[in-house]
Amino acid sequence: MSEKLDLGSWVNDFVQHLQENYSGAFEQIGSLVSGFSELVEQLLMWPPAWVLIAIFVGLGLWRIGIGFAAFTAAALALIVHTGFWEQTVATLGLTFSSTFISLLLGVPLGIWAAKSERVATVIRPILDFMQTMPAFVYLIPAAMLFGLGRVPGIIATVIFAMPPAVRLTSLGIRQVNKEIVEAGQSFGCNAWQLLFKVQLPNALPSIMAGVNQTIMMALSMVIIASMVGAGGLGNDVLASIQRLDIGLGFESGMAVVLLAIILDRITESFGTPRTASRRRFAWLSMLRLQRQ
């Protein structure tokens, strides 16, 4: 064991090679991502704060119930009054953009992995790598390739947040009851009908769990991505660490937590079966019964 295996310098060379030879491609991807994320952010920034709040409260009322709607209203009001609204919306924008890209890539990949054993075998270690490699480690090469700002933040977030979408889509499709798939086939489904009319609808709870996980992981990652200048609440968290400002850290951290809870509960509710939403209005039908 005289000489150390220098894996690190190979990676350095590789990143440098990418930088030198493929900068055009990275620029293109970068402008695409940046254009899209700006659009999302502007869309969220455009209406006054209360409109966005009303949408979230409305979603909470529809999907979960009156209690959660009240909590949402209070939480968002708290964020507005502590002065973190703009940063929160920026973070929300980053989270949505990253989640959207993650799902755009992750769900088809998950479908492919469900259909092909070989793809599943290849993808699995890559997903492990994406999920467990400490995020800071690929934040830096991302910044080197895409420059500082929102884009490397989103790219790094996509890498970190995509695996659950792939995994749970694949798992969901594989777990669809064998006889239900056979039923689809026996009635003459072609491959597309089988996918869209049988497998995806029946895998929906699992896929929605993947979406929920992706959103939560994206949210946690866009905070870290402020280190490469992605912006949003992460900036305040970072500033509080640098200045040892515990109060600021708590305020901005609180905003992250509240946002996380709201996003989690709402997306989770979409994974439950269709009739569950009707049960929430069960008291309505009870009133009707009593009148009869």
Binding site: E179, A183, F187, G188, C189
Partner: peptide, 22 residues
């Protein structure tokens, strides 16, 4: 085969195999 399955035959399953979201 798909045409034959659509037109001429159908199957009933032990576990019923109904789609829960329909």
């Amino acid at each position: 085969l798909i045409e034959l399955r659509r037109r001429d035959m159908s199957m009933v399953f032990q576990s019923f195999a109904l789609m829960p979201s329909r």
